[in-house]
């Protein structure tokens, strides 16, 4: 296979200028969603999915990298490396 074509790298300033409005609108979507839950009759507070959302929001605000991957793993069932033995499959 031929050598990889070069990837163009945008600067952080460029990305922010290009995508600020998009990110702003997504934060507003989330904020309005949380307001909607708050206003609604009943309470979802105790549901496991609410805890997942809260933990997901914490990932967005912490100082670590790989946020998309970490949110994905947060929302994933665990993988057990011994699954084949448990299923009796080889």
């Amino acid at each position: 296979m031929s050598t990889d074509p070069k990837l163009h790298r945008r600067s952080a300033e460029e990305i922010l200028a290009d995508e600020f409005l998009q990110a702003r609108s997504r934060i507003l979507d989330l904020a309005a969603f949380l307001d909607r839950l708050e206003r609604a009759p009943g309470s979802a507070e105790q549901e496991a999915r609410m805890r997942l959302l809260a933990e997901g929001l914490e990932i967005l605000c912490d100082d670590e990298v790989g946020k998309a991957q970490r949110v994905q793993l947060l929302m994933s069932r665990d993988y057990d490396p011994a699954w084949q033995t448990k299923y009796g499959i080889h």
């Binding site: 793993l73 929302m75 994933s76 069932r77 665990d78 993988y79 057990d80 490396p81 084949q84």
Partner: peptide
């Protein structure tokens, strides 16, 4: 899809690489 993807992908890779 969704919450099953990570576990399922790892299982699939285990089977293929075995």
């Amino acid at each position: 899809h969704l919450e099953d993807k990570y576990q399922g992908t790892r299982m699939i890779l285990d089977m293929l690489m075995g």
